[in-house]
Write a protein that binds this DNA or RNA. Structure first.
Length: 573
RNA sequence: GCCUCCGUAGCUCAGCGGAUAGAGCGCCGGCCUCCGGAGCCGGAAGCGCAGGUUCGAGUCCUGCCGGGGGCGCCA
């Protein structure tokens, strides 16, 4: 497939090898040319040769026939300008390709993708948005490359809070509460349990006993616990569907599912000589972690009371994903505040010998969502807003935004568009920001049809599709030849061919914003093209067919790219 | 106190060790009787501070300043 950067690298490699075997040409996009090779200067330095002279030697030796022209520039850059004929035929090939030029991965992985992971007994809130949306996007790209993705929704479904929740549920009676305790009321249920726990000493005591009963597998207690879990999963699933997230109930692998593996985690760590008893707790002290007093910081695997904490569960889950699920990629899409925890867990897992050399374990951390006061997004009552409320507001605001545009819609179309545009706007605002950075949540900005937004991209796509609707066809004629005469045509062709680069970068850094940024740039490049180059009114049929191919490829790249972000691209809006 | 993330234009954000740091919004000036105005073209405006490494630093290292987060039995 005609990926420019890859093609250039491969064709330059022999000339670089002739100077120093294995040296990297360092091909990068350039604003001086289409691409530039930056590898010469470092090489010249290492060899003690004048960089421009070496650059010229490599330029002379490189065979770029039919691909690009090359020239030495500046202190030793190689400027690379792709041949128009190459660009044209490459775009033709991309438009004929169902994958739009994106190759499948040569090396396939089985990926355990841990994301979303809410807590049972509470509703999803904005704090869950980023992890859910980022994880889902990465999963979609990974699958497209041919990797096998095993989503893991690591629910918080175990531990001390369940004592009070179960006790409260038991008091209400499962049957009696069947109506009152349902999706949407989880937070209220949690709150009332919490209030009773704080106010009623006997309730608190019963709650503590419930925890013990739960841990000992008391069937009546487990029965109540299952009601809580099932009801929560139903709620999660409803929100995931609204969000158009791929997670399913079958992907749930909560903390409780590792209960029977925790003892053997202890055994493994003991065998590896890592376990240390400290204040009655069983701990591992990984190197390089200190507490406030400058003493070694423990990862507490088993608590003083004999119970297991989340460190034990995380260790068990990690080992399970490698041993039982045979995953060679473990990604944890979890908020940045937990980075130290994961560093410690990963360190311990390596020390225990659980992680073979071919396995990559990574914490895909992300920042927080801030309000316009630049503090954590909160409601006026100081709580994290419920995700469903936020999404419904997005849909409502999108509907208003659509109305303001003055278009008329068919029955049901407005509702459909309001939902896809509203949800898409929220997701795009999130995914277009660099993962680790906190970002400010701003309704007006994210729902605008102007600028770097979800609605803008969806609209760009719909506009292109309208060209084909006018024409009465679904796409361009695949046999059409592409001719690139105008600079805007050339620029658009080049941008289209960069799609694989954007996707590669997305996976390399687990960074959907790389893809988002590419799509926005593509839409902008298209607009310039569309402004300068009439399509339906092109001077002749050859040019018209050629431009239709460019339009077709752009629309499909936008739609496919947006789908990787989990965002729908309607045919019209 | 230690660790960690962040600090780029008025605002919100991009920038994979490479040349003259980009975009969106806002602002200023032009253009478009246009295939759905997502207008198009141009302009003013910026790397928290100080050192260091490097042929080359917004990017890597050290220190400082400012902000967020984390730091023993919650997850």
């Amino acid at each position: 497939m005609p990926e420019p950067a890859r093609a250039l690298r491969e064709r330059l490699q022999p000339a670089f090898d002739a100077v120093a075997a294995g040296s990297d040409p360092v091909v990068r996009p350039s604003d001086r040319a289409d691409y530039q090779a930056n590898g010469v200067m470092a090489l010249a330095k290492a060899l003690g040769r004048p960089p421009r002279e070496l650059a010229q030697q490599i330029a002379d030796a490189a065979d770029l026939e039919g691909l690009a022209s090359i020239e030495v520039a500046g202190p030793g850059f190689l400027n690379l300008t792709l041949d128009a004929a190459f660009l044209a035929s490459a775009v033709e090939a991309v438009d004929r390709d169902g994958r739009l030029g994106v190759p499948e991965a040569t090396e396939r992985h089985r990926v355990a993708l841990d994301y979303s992971s809410p807590g049972v007994g509470k509703e999803l809130h904005v704090g869950h948005l980023r992890g859910t949306v980022i994880g889902d996007s990465l999963g979609r790209v990974l699958r497209f490359y041919g990797h096998e993705v095993i989503p893991r929704n690591h629910l918080g479904d175990w531990g001390t809070p369940f004592g009070m929740l179960i006790e409260h549920l038991g008091d209400l009676g499962v049957d009696a509460s069947a109506d009152g305790f349902s999706v949407g009321d989880l937070d209220a249920f949690y709150k009332s349990a919490r209030e009773r726990f704080d106010a009623d000493a006997s309730f608190a005591e019963r709650s503590r006993q419930r925890v013990v009963a739960l841990q000992h597998g008391d069937e009546a207690t487990l029965e109540l616990w299952r009601v809580l879990v099932n009801e929560s999963v139903r709620h999660f699933d409803a929100v995931y569907r609204l969000l158009d997230i791929r997670l399913q109930p079958a992907d749930v692998a909560g903390e409780s599912s590792y209960n029977d593996q925790l003892d053997s985690v202890i055994e493994d760590l003991e065998r590896a000589g890592l376990l240390v008893e400290s204040d009655g707790a069983l701990c591992v002290f990984p190197d390089g972690f200190l507490n406030r007093e400058g003493e070694p910081l423990p990862l507490i695997v088993r608590k003083r009371d004999g119970g297991y904490g989340y460190a034990a569960t995380d260790l068990a889950a990690l080992r399970d994903r490698i041993d039982r699920l045979s995953c060679d990629r473990l990604y944890y899409v979890v908020g940045a505040p937990q980075s130290q925890h994961f560093e410690m867990v990963f360190r311990v897992a390596h020390a225990a010998g659980w992680v073979p050399d071919n396995v990559v374990v990574a914490h895909v951390a992300f920042g927080s969502i801030l309000g316009d006061d630049h503090k954590m997004l909160k409601t006026r009552t100081g709580e994290s807003p419920r995700l469903v409320d936020l999404l419904h507001e997005a849909i409502e605001r999108a509907g208003t935004a659509l109305d303001e545009r003055g278009a008329t819609y068919e029955e049901g179309e407005r509702a459909y568009l309001a939902e896809t545009i509203g949800i898409g706007a929220v997701k795009y605002a999130d995914l277009s920001t660099e993962r680790l950075r906190d970002y400010v949540f701003d309704w007006d900005r994210m729902l605008s049809f102007e600028g770097d937004t979800g609605p803008y991209l969806a609209y760009a796509h719909a506009r292109i599709r309208s060209i084909f609707r006018r024409l009465g066809t679904d796409g361009a004629d695949p046999t059409s030849q592409v001719v690139l005469a105008e600079p805007q045509e050339r620029a658009l062709a080049l941008e289209l061919l960069r799609f694989p680069e954007a996707l590669d970068a997305t996976l390399e850094w687990y960074a959907p914003h790389r893809l988002a940024g590419y799509l926005f740039g593509l839409a902008q490049t298209f607009t310039s093209f569309y402004e300068a180059c009439p399509v339906l009114r092109a001077p002749d049929d050859t040019v018209r067919q050629s431009r239709l191919v460019l339009c077709d490829a752009t629309a499909r790249t936008l739609a496919l790219g947006l789908s990787f972000l989990g965002i729908a691209a309607p045919e019209r809006m």
